[in-house]
Structures are given as structure tokens and as C-alpha cells.
Amino acid sequence: MLDDLSFGWRSAVLVVAEVQLLIVAAALARAMANRTANRTLALLLLVLVGIVTPWMIGFAGFYDKWRWLSFAPFQITLGVAPLFYFYVHALVTGTWPVPAWRHLAPPTLQFAFLTGSFLLPMPAKNAWSAIITTPYDIVTGIGAIAGMLFYGREALALLHRYRGLLATQRSDDHRFAATWISRAIAAGAALLAVWTVYAVWDALSPLGYTGLMGLYVAIAIFALFIAIEGWRHAALPFPTIESLAIPADPTPPPRDWRALGEAWAAQVRAEHWARDPDLSLATLARRLGTNTGHLSRALNEGLGVNFSTFINRLRCDAVAEAIAAGSTADLLDLALDAGFSSKASFNRAFQAAYGMAPSSYRRAHGSKAE
């Protein structure tokens, strides 16, 4: 029965990618942390597998052997952009945007259209295909491109807001800044450019199955990137935007926020509280005997910094003091002892605080040991 099929290198490349995506999707669906986000990403990966599938089986000759497969509802291209946005939204808020049905209406209609066309008898299906294929490809192609532009912008705006809140509440904000999602959006922009070029090219001069191979390899690469990065961050307990919101002080008494900020900074420095890598605004406020609103105002209005910058500057100062005292310990050990949780966050904070890399600072001010 399979003698008429031909599994060449094109089918092999796509099927290897699909198998990996399905494995990661199954693992994400079972993850307990960030359940809504991880299950949304698993659904997105399944949609991406569906987009690649017709080309994988088409290269193998499935459509030539079983013509009734035409219009099989594999390619729900209009679902990629909203599901990616849903993933970002669920990651930072814990839920999908409301109402979700408005965002999912286009892919639902696309699925219904393909399913209805797929169920037609073969003579009717062939006639329908000759009429509808070109306008359908144009409409869904424009819709997919427009969706990637719109939802990419929305995802970036949401991440920007999230990072701003993180910096006011967490000293380990770099762990949850989700820079990989920004890279995924950039990768999506590159995929959008490739998709647009292929769409225009194919409209002007039909490329056929083999000519579009590059596009579907690009889609598979994008899918594998977000699958791997999503799995790497699947168990990280992201604080939600709601939990990061600082309660408003309805009747704040007049205070000298600068004096308070300087007094609290001196106490934090004396107690070495910045060495706690998980230190948050709420934890520090409890230790200082105040509330998060007052502490936030003392830092923002009094000292002109957000919480993350304040704590990480204290950590950088601790490393600089150790270097000046002649410590020969490894820089990473000094950073971890000061409260940093990674080398990357230490290097970034130290560069911002002192205008040079930690190794350069040591050469200029301390021991020659690296």
C-alpha cells in the first residue's frame, strides 16, 4: 500500500522536526508549574506541526495517492499569532486575555471552513478547489501576516509592562524578564519577512511544493526554538502582574522620602540583606517595618532608583569593596556571595553601576587575580 510513496530528504527533515515538537508539546501539557502558559505553548506547537504536516506528507506523495486528503484541516495558520500572545499573557498574568473567543474567532472559522470543504464528496471538492484555492490562500496569507504584526506588538507591550513591574518588586528580576520571548518575537519577525517574500514570490510565479521548502524549514526552525526555550523555562514560577502591583496609599502623610530612603539604604547595607538572592520588595519592607508603598516611594522619589537597581547596586558595591580589600576569590564567587544568582546578571549590573566590566575593575583597583 505504501509502495507508491517516496520518503525523501524533504519529508525526513520535516518529520524529524515534527517528532521533536510533539515530544516537547506532550511534556509541556503535563508540566505542573505555569499550567495555563505551558498548555497554551503545547497547543501552539501542535498548530505549528499542523502547518508543516501537509508539506511533509505532500513531499512523500500522500496527496497524489489519496486525493481525498485535500482540504484536510491541518494548516490553521491564523492560530499561530494569537496563541503566541496567549502564551505570553498566561506567563505573566496566569490567564488568557478576556474575552478569548474574539482572538480565536479567525482560526476557528478557518478550521470550520477547511473541515466543511474536506467533507465534500470528491467531485464537488474538486470543483470547489478550483474556485476557492487562490482567494483562500490570499485571505489567509494576509491574515497570518497581519496577525503576526499585531500580536507581536501586543506581546512586546505586555513584556515591557511586566519588566517594569518586576524591577520595582524583585531583585532577581532578570530571571523572569523573559528575554528569550523578545528573541522569539524577533525570530517571528524574521519568519514574517521570509513568509512575506515567499507569499509574494509564489503569487507572481508559483513555486510549487519543492520551491516552498525553504519557508517550511523556517517555520520548523522557529517552532523548535520556542519549543526548546519554552521547555527550559517551563518550571520557573513566574510572579504574575497582579502580584507585583503595589497597593496605592490613599492618604499618604507628608514625608521626607529622600531622608527615609537614605536611612533605609544604610540599614539594608548594615544588615547585608542584599545578599539574599530572592529578596523582594515585600520581604524588605517587612524587615524595615514599613509597607511596600512607602518603601517604593522612598526608593523611586527619594533615591531616584527602582528596587532592582537599588539592591543590585548594593551587591555591586559589596563586590567592589571585596576587590579593593585585596580579595583573590573568583569574581563569580564574590558575586554569588553578594546575592547575585547568575554571572550574566552580575556582569550587567556591575557594568551599569561602575561603567566597566568586573574583570576590568579588578585590574584597575585590586588584585591581578581573575
Rank of each mutant, 00 (worst) to 15 (best):
R102E: 07
L22D: 00
P97A: 15
F86C: 11
W96H: 15
S117T: 09
S117Q: 08
T115M: 13
A29T: 00
V52L: 12
Q20M: 11
R35I: 12
Q75D: 13
G116W: 05
T36R: 15
K125W: 03
L21G: 04
I57Q: 00
W55I: 02
P97M: 13
L44W: 06
A42W: 08
P97K: 13
L48G: 09
F113T: 12
N38D: 07
I23E: 07
L109H: 06
P82G: 10
N34C: 01
R35G: 14
F84S: 04
A42V: 08
F74G: 02
F71C: 01
P97F: 13
P82W: 10
T108Y: 11
T95I: 05
W55H: 13
A90N: 08
P54V: 02
T40M: 12
L69R: 06
G94N: 14
A33W: 05
P106S: 12
G61R: 09
F62M: 08
T93A: 15
R67W: 01
P97T: 13
L28S: 06
G94H: 15
N34K: 01
N38S: 12
P73H: 05
Y85R: 05
F111P: 00
Y63Q: 10
M122K: 00
F84Q: 10
V88I: 09
T108I: 14
L91P: 00
L28A: 06
S70R: 07
P107V: 06
F74M: 10
Y87R: 03
Q20V: 08
F111T: 05
F74D: 08
V92K: 09
S70D: 05
Q20W: 11
L114R: 04
A60C: 09
T115Q: 09
P121H: 07
A72N: 02
F59H: 11
A112S: 12
P107T: 06
P97V: 13
A27L: 12
T77M: 10
L22Y: 00
L44R: 10
M56R: 06
V47C: 09
P99N: 10
N126E: 11
G58T: 05
P97D: 14
A25G: 04
G58P: 08
S70I: 03
A124N: 01
V88L: 01
L69S: 07
P82T: 12
M32V: 14
A17I: 01
L45R: 06
P123H: 03
T40I: 09
L91M: 07
L46P: 07
D64Y: 06
K125P: 03
A31D: 03
A105K: 01
I51S: 11
T53A: 14
L44N: 10
S70N: 08
L46R: 13
M56W: 04
G50V: 11
